[in-house]
Design a binder for these strands. Structure first.
Length: 285
DNA sequence: AGTCGCCTGGTA
DNA sequence: TACCAGGCGACT
C-alpha cells in the first residue's frame, strides 16, 4: 500500500508524537519472518538504545537509534505502523512490537506478510538501501535529472515512474494520478516525452505527492495513520480505481482500465493520448 | 518484457 | 469462485 505520501505521513506523525528521545525497553517479534535481515541479534542491539532520528527515503521508513543502528521498515502492500498505549487492545496483524519507555508501543504488522523490518548499521543503510534508490520524488527530483532519465529509455513512462532505482517513492496510485494531471498516456515511450511535457509531469508528481501528504495519504484499503485513522487522498482520486467512471475533464468519457508492465493502469483516452512517436513516423514513411 | 512467488483479504 | 490488490525481486 504505502507509497511516498503514506510513509511521509507516518514519519510526520511519529515526529509530532515525540518518539524521538524515547528509549526502547523491549522488542517482541510475533512473526519472525517479518525480520528480513539483521547484522546482529535484533533484540540485543536495540533494547536499551533510544530513537534519535526518524526519516524517510522513497518508500522506506528509517528509525535511527543512538548506537548507529537503524530499524528500516518497508511496508510493501499492506504494512501498518501504529503507536499505541501499552494497555490499548491488541491490533490484528501485529508482527513486531517495540516498547518505549513512556508506556507506548510501536506496533508493526502486515496482513499479507510481505512487509519487512531490518536492522542495519549506518554504512549498510547507505550501501544496501539509499545508494540503490534514485532521488526522492518529493524532495530530490529536479527537471534536469528527470528529463535525462526520460531520454535514456523507451520504456513506457508509467513503468519508469515506478522504477525505484530511477526515482524513489512513486507507486501505482501516484503514477496513475500524475500522468492524468500531466495529460500523458501511461504507455508513452519515455524518450518521446518532450521537455515541456517532462516539466508538466514533474509538476504533476510534486503536486499529487504534496496534496496527498496534506490529506494524510490514501487509505484505499489498508493504510492507517499511527493512531489508526484514515488518510483522505482517496476522496480526490481522479483516475485511480475509477474504471468505468467519467473522466473529471470529460463527463461523457469513461476512465479505462488496462495493464502496463503488469500493473493496473487507469487513464482517459481523450486527455491522455500517446504522443506521435518516432517509430510510427518511420513506418508512415 | 512478461510471469511468478510471496500471502491474505475484499469484492464482483 | 475467481480475480484483484498502495511492492518488489527472481526467474525465463
Amino acid at each position: 500500500m504505502p507509497e511516498l505520501p503514506e510513509i511521509e505521513t507516518i514519519k510526520n506523525q511519529l515526529l509530532s508524537a515525540a518518539v524521538i528521545g524515547r528509549s526502547i525497553t523491549q522488542i517482541e517479534v510475533l512473526y519472525p519472518q517479518v525480520v528480513a535481515y539483521t547484522e546482529e541479534g535484533f533484540e540485543d542491539v536495540v533494547v536499551g538504545t533510544s530513537v534519535d532520528d526518524v526519516h524517510r527515503k522513497g518508500k522506506y521508513l528509517v528509525l535511527g537509534l543512538d548506537n548507529k543502528r537503524n530499524i528500516v521498515i518497508h511496508f510493501r502492500m499492506n504494512g501498518r505502523l501504529l503507536l499505541r498505549e501499552r494497555t490499548f487492545a491488541f491490533d490484528p496483524y501485529t508482527q513486531i512490537v517495540i516498547s518505549l519507555d513512556d508506556g507506548r508501543e510501536l506496533r508493526f504488522g502486515d496482513s499479507r506478510k510481505f512487509a519487512t523490518v531490518e536492522l542495519m548499521c549506518d554504512a549498510d543503510l547507505k550501501a544496501k538501501i539509499v545508494n540503490k534508490l534514485g532521488p526522492d520524488a518529493a524532495s530530490e527530483l529536479d527537471l534536469e535529472y528527470f528529463y535525462q532519465v526520460l531520454q535514456s529509455t523507451t520504456r513506457p513512462i508509467k513503468s519508469l515512474l515506478l522504477d525505484q532505482q530511477k526515482i524513489a517513492g512513486i507507486g501505482n496510485i501516484y503514477a496513475n494520478e500524475a500522468l492524468w494531471w500531466a495529460k500523458i498516456h501511461p504507455e508513452t515511450s519515455s524518450a518521446d516525452v518532450e521537455k515541456r511535457e517532462a516539466k508538466e509531469l514533474l509538476g504533476a508528481i510534486h503536486r499529487v505527492l504534496a496534496e496527498s501528504i496534506q490529506l494524510g495519504g490514501s487509505s484505499k484499503r489498508w493504510f492507517r495513520h499511527i493512531d489508526g485513522g484514515l488518510g483522505r487522498y482517496q476522496e480526490i482520486f481522479k483516475v485511480y480505481n475509477k474504471a468505468g467512471l467519467p473522466c473529471p475533464r470529460h463527463q461523457d468519457v469513461l476512465i479505462r482500465y488496462s495493464k502496463v508492465g503488469g500493473r493496473g493502469t487507469y487513464h482517459c483516452e481523450i486527455c491522455q493520448q500517446i504522443a506521435k512517436n518516432r517509430q510510427t513516423s518511420l513506418i508512415d514513411q
